[in-house]
Design a protein around this nucleic acid. Sequence first.
RNA 1: GCGCAGGUGACGGAGUGGUCAAUCGUAGCGCGCUGUAAACGCGCCGCCUUCGGGCUACACAGGUUCGAAUCCUGUCCUGCGCACCA
Length: 394
Amino acid sequence: MKADQKTVEEILSRGVEEVVDRAHLRAALASGRKLRVKFGVDPTSPDLHLGHAVVLRKLREFQDAGHRAVLVVGDFTGMIGDPSGRSETRKPLTAAEVRANMKSYLAQAGKILDMKKAEVAHNSSWFAKEGITEFVRLASAGTFQEVLHRADFKKRIDAGQGITFLELLYPLFQGYDSVKVKADVELGGTDQTFNLLAGRRVQRHFGMPEQDIMTMPILEGLDGVKKMSKSIGNYIGLADKPADMFGKVMSVPDALVKKYFMLCTDLPSGEIESLCRSEKPKALKERLGFEIVMLYRGEKAARAAQENFEKVFSRGEVPEDIQEVRVKDAKVAALDLAVELGAAKSRGEARRLIEQGGFDVDGNAVKDPRAILAFRGGEVVKAGKKRFFKIKIK
RNA sequence: GCGCAGGUGACGGAGUGGUCAAUCGUAGCGCGCUGUAAACGCGCCGCCUUCGGGCUACACAGGUUCGAAUCCUGUCCUGCGCACCA
């Protein structure tokens, strides 16, 4: 395996926040040696989004350069819960939850990684076996002060919140994974910096060469401020329908478009630069949406998504494929229909939606919750700006 | 274990016997403007309602009172201090 210098530099820089030890990793990449690149998978999230993809895409780059991707499923550490960036103690997962999450996770990761060439390890396979002696040895790999100086712990301490022993130990456990899989490199988001560095320390403690670490920027979600995350709901899921994916990209604040291009598409950096200079924000963002959908769903789906967007949101027409909903009766009160369609969580919310003009049938706003609507089938009901339902009579 | 402080809606955080379904901010939702951007404006934001109102809520369980998120008792949970070094 011969790595040309350009590839090496691309791996080291594109969408990368920090590399430790940079010179060492550069040399390792240039050496032609096949590196073991570790990535820790959080078993709490069954659904992947573009934020996860940032790191996975980097991992894919390593794969393409001939290196070995090693996914470490944190099924054991998942029972502890990574304290990184957390403002409170996490509740542990059960074994069954972890299993179900991982199945779905790995399937989605396959859209980015070459799973045939990847190695998947579960850290329960060693943690469940190790004895207390090994635990004691591990527990002396780091110091208390070190951990307490972490910004996220400091914040919790200042805020008067609790931190459990287990959380304190988390970085060491994760570092131990690096020992067991003999990692040469470990990837993660910048929020993982501390844990990744702990991996180096633990490896040294166990008499092993230290891994290099590489951190990727955290991708902000649709709100443009908070980290993309499922629980906040500001994410673009890899499993989202093409139209949704495209639409969500369009709702990303302009300021983030360039970052998204760099981290979420395959366009060369130079081309991104010139596009950003020449294109208007809207056109630029459409291109971004197209590129992203294409990556996960193919060019055809990307075109369709873009056309659908033009049609529905630029021209205010009805989308192509609307969710068809069977309705029990041909005659229903607007309020009952809104609830039946799932347009609102409660009757009160549905009432509000209707009264405030956010509910219409074939383009005609219905403002009276009690209005009786008669359907023949095929009518299109719109709730808010984005949700459409096609009525089908049973 | 003892002492102190505290547990209020998605979150932050008011309220400390009636006028409290609970001020305010954030988030969210709808409408408007627009490029499903940003900024801004208006409205909404516990559940049900025949729109009169009804019901359930302020950790949990009891109690005092005509009346409690507000007072008392117990339980659970959280933080801080003390308890060893002094």
